[in-house]
Design a protein around this nucleic acid. Sequence first.
DNA 1: AGTTAAACCGAATCAGCGTTCGATTATATG
DNA 2: CATATAATCGAACGCTGATTCGGTTTAACT
Lengths: 221, 221
Amino acid sequence: MARKPADQTVYREDILRAAAQVLHRNGYEATTMKDIAAQVNLTAASLYHHFKNKDFLLLNVLEVGLDHVIVQLEAIAAADASNAEKLAAMIRSHVVSVTGHVAVGAAMVFEIRALLNISGSARNGDVALRDEFIQRRDQFFARRDYFESLFRDTVRAGIASGEFRDVDAAIVTKAILGAHNWVGVWFREGGRLSGDEVADVMVDLFLSALRPTSSVNDRSG
Amino acid sequence: MARKPADQTVYREDILRAAAQVLHRNGYEATTMKDIAAQVNLTAASLYHHFKNKDFLLLNVLEVGLDHVIVQLEAIAAADASNAEKLAAMIRSHVVSVTGHVAVGAAMVFEIRALLNISGSARNGDVALRDEFIQRRDQFFARRDYFESLFRDTVRAGIASGEFRDVDAAIVTKAILGAHNWVGVWFREGGRLSGDEVADVMVDLFLSALRPTSSVNDRSG
DNA sequence: AGTTAAACCGAATCAGCGTTCGATTATATG
DNA sequence: CATATAATCGAACGCTGATTCGGTTTAACT
């Protein structure tokens, strides 16, 4: 080993963070390797020491971002709590995560499509590289579906247990996630509300939307 | 006048429709003028007879799409109905519009950012062209805000009238629009639900979320 | 038939971008 | 100190894509 041995991963993360920022600003196709490199005081050529190519760099950004939220959601899903409490915690976790890392959150929404158009050297020539990319990309898509299923399953369980009224869990889940994703577009640090406060609104909104009509089960009236 | 005089606008619309489709597939930066041209059996060069450049072409797509939904929303806002009825109609109108024109709906969400990076010939040299673009672009942004205000004002009015409970109207509006926008990403013609059915779910979800808690006003309990 | 202007195309231009490669610097280890 | 290797860079390559330009086709109107 040689230069900065234990710091390698740190440097990688620096690049990923920088990449997310530039991606957030310009979008995948419009951001150049030079842009990303400049953000960490490197040249474009140097990035190829850390990532195989531009596509893999984007994929890395998205993978890290997705893992970050999934870890938290899994902990919530596994906890001992009611489905309503779980869903509330999940919404809060996701929204806080998005508001805390707007660049990554927005990339997760806007740049996924860029993964579909394989560009760069992996498109021609290097078949092995191309295959590796496709495999990791599809794995990412599967993981993205899994992420969504964590929400959906909680909604379904809540319906089954009577905590939630009977709604189309799949669509409602997509509505919730759409609202969350959009947060990454409009939220600005230092705005009227903090990330936590936005999360509060979201939790209140969607739990209210799912609460059974009191006229049926309410014994207090 | 000469060839196809009365059909000029029709041809323009054909191009815009085609552009929206290709945009939906690839995103702005990744779609080439050649791609769009091929979709209507033209060459890239011919497109410059109809639109000043690529940026203006995108702007046209977005303008037409936005106008389409605003016209309907304005009619609803001006109608004689309760705020709850108005909001329901607005949600339905928007969702049906998005599911009916997924390509345009998605472009409205994904490609707006592309308007910020002025590219092409307007960036260098041609100052007049650049200014014209910036002006129309900002006008579009203002109109986009106006679109959002139509929803927000209805929510606010509903809160004031007691039809809705007291929520943060700005955030709730963004949540609603985020859910709608996301529809353009996942909705597929011929899927489990029609556009109307998706709209039903959305209306039910958000009106339930806004309904005042029955324990306060409900005299039936 | 002739005129006119719209609509269109082929070919060329020109810049920018991803990527590669060879060389150089820096650092941890022996 | 010597050396292997990580990290970096400058320069060059190849390609793609937006745009331009000159010329051609088409169709309405005289």
